[in-house]
């Protein structure tokens, strides 16, 4: 029968898994944001080759399953002489794959900027780089906090797939707990609710932050 208390005893192991999930998530969020920003800038560049390369990048990583990418990295990297563990393989692959979604979100943010603002900046004598760093990117990023947040929440959920390459994160830890207790239903139910509550809380925080940063905008 259903025994909801089964998880209590195994909280330390669960917590260890959570820490690994948190570490991978934070590193990959930073990584994917940096790569995504670069791809977004290439995507709106005036150079045709850059634009095409960025579009190709986005198209590839949005249409190939993450599991295939992670297997490719996990089995492929040692073949070319790069020996890194599951943790770093996970961080790199997540950063590269999620960057495609980040790039599209930031690009949408950039293209929504009122052209008048950019023209005003030009007429005030701002340099091209300054227009990007002081006007375009701050506006584009603050106005897309909420969509970026959902991309990153998806990233956190995707870290569960790293259990397939033996990384000891939340899902792996729960798998071990499930096979020791013979209570898979309770353990995975707990995990589903845990991820659910975590993402609800994070999206509430992000929504609040988004509202705060955009408090002077009418929309």
């Amino acid at each position: 029968m259903l025994d909801p208390a089964v998880m209590m005893e195994y909280m330390p192991a669960f917590w260890d898994g959570f820490i690994v999930t948190a570490e991978v998530s934070i590193l990959s969020i930073i990584g994917s944001f940096i790569i995504g920003l670069l791809i977004a800038l290439l995507r709106i560049s005036e150079n045709k080759v850059c634009r095409f390369a960025a579009l190709f990048y986005v198209d590839i990583f949005r249409n190939i399953p993450f599991l295939v990418l992670i297997f490719f990295a996990y089995y492929g990297l040692p073949e070319v002489g790069i020996y890194i563990d599951a943790f770093w393989t996970g961080c790199f692959t997540l950063s590269i794959a999620v960057a495609a979604y980040v790039a599209e979100t930031i690009r949408a943010g950039i293209q929504n900027i009122d052209k008048g603002i950019i023209e005003a900046a030009k007429s005030f004598g701002f340099k091209r780089v300054q227009i990007y760093t002081k006007i375009i990117l701050p506006i584009a990023i603050t106005s897309s906090i909420r969509p970026l947040g959902s991309v990153f929440i998806n990233l956190i959920l995707t870290t569960s797939i790293l259990s397939a390459i033996t990384l000891g994160e939340l899902t792996s830890a729960s798998k071990i707990i499930a096979s020791t207790t013979f209570r898979p239903f309770e353990v995975y139910m707990f995990l589903v609710i845990f991820y659910g509550v975590l993402t609800f809380a994070l999206s509430a925080v992000i929504a609040g932050w988004h509202k705060y940063l955009n408090r002077y905008n009418e929309a």
Partner: peptide, 23 residues
């Protein structure tokens, strides 16, 4: 639906494949 949307599909697969037959 909210919980299905906000948790990893992999965990949902484990819940159904390992959890439901056990329970």
């Amino acid at each position: 639906s909210e919980f299905l949307k906000n948790s990893p599909v992999l965990v949902q697969l484990f819940l159904v494949y390992f959890g439901i037959p056990a329970l």
